[in-house]
Amino acid sequence: MRGFQYARPVTVGEAVALLDEYGPDARLLAGGTDLVIGFRDGSIRPKVVIDLKRISELRPSIEHTGESISISACAVMTDIVEHAGVREHFPALVEAAQVVGSVQIRNRATLAGNICNGSPAADTAPPLLVYDAMVAVSGPTGARRMPIDEFIVGPKRVALERGELVTAIELPIPDPPIGSAYTRLTRRWGTDLASITLCCGVDGAGVTRLAYGSVGPRAFLVVDESGILADPHMSDDAKAPLLDRMFAEATPSPRSMRASPEYRLAMLRVLGARALRTAIGRLPKGSTT
C-alpha cells in the first residue's frame, strides 16, 4: 500500500479546511471498509487521509428528536440495526443495514460512507430515498441540508462541493406512518454485493414510493399516487403493468458479471411485487384507504 499523510482533526472546521486545501488529493476516512480496499489496490491514492472519528460532532450517535431521527456521520450499521427508534420507524433501513457485508463490516461501515461512496449498489440508498432522508452537509461556506434524491448523483458521485463533508443523515418520522420493506437480489445467501437493491413504502393514502438500485448509474425513486399499487385487494397481475412502468429507469449494464440485464429486469418485477406485498402487510392496521 502506498504511503500518505494522515490527519486527525477534532472539529468539523478543521476537517473542512483540510478538505478545502487538498481537494481531490484528500480522502475522508470514516469506516474505511471501501476506502482501504482502494488504497491497497491502488485505485485510490490520496495525499492525505482525513480521519473523521475524532471529531466530537460526528461521533457515532443516533438522535431521536420526536419529528426525526438524525444519524451522525460516524454511526455504523450495527448502531443503526440495534437502535430502537430506527427499528420502529424505519424497518426497511434496518433490513438494508443488516445485509451490508458481515458483522465485521457492519461494525465499521457507516451510513454516511455507504452513501458518499456513490455506489449504485449501496444497500441503504433505496430506503433513504423512500424515507425522504435529508443529508446534512458542512463546508467552507457553512452548513446546508439537501434531500437524498439530490445528493445522490451517479456512479461514485454525490453532490458535495470542494471542502464539503456529510455531518449527518436525517430521517423524518413518517406521519402518518407507512409500511415499508427492503429486499435485494444476490448470488448467494451469504454476504454479497447486490444485483438489485429495492425498497418499497406505502402510506394510508395509497401513495407508493419505490426505490431501486444496482440497475443503473444510481438508485432511483419513483412514486405512484394512483393508489393501485398500494391497494391490498388488487391482484399482482393487475398491478404488474404499473409496476413495470415504475421500473422504466432501470438500465442494467450488459457488462456486469453479477447478473444479465434480462435477469435483473425480470427480478425487479419479482422483488418489486414481493416488497410491495410486505410493505402493505406492514402498514399499521386502520391506516389503509
Partner: peptide
C-alpha cells in the same frame, strides 16, 4: 466489537 483488521489503519 469484531472487525476486519485488514480494513483498518493501525492509527485508527
Amino acid at each position: 466489537r469484531a472487525m476486519n483488521s485488514c480494513l483498518m489503519l493501525a492509527v485508527e
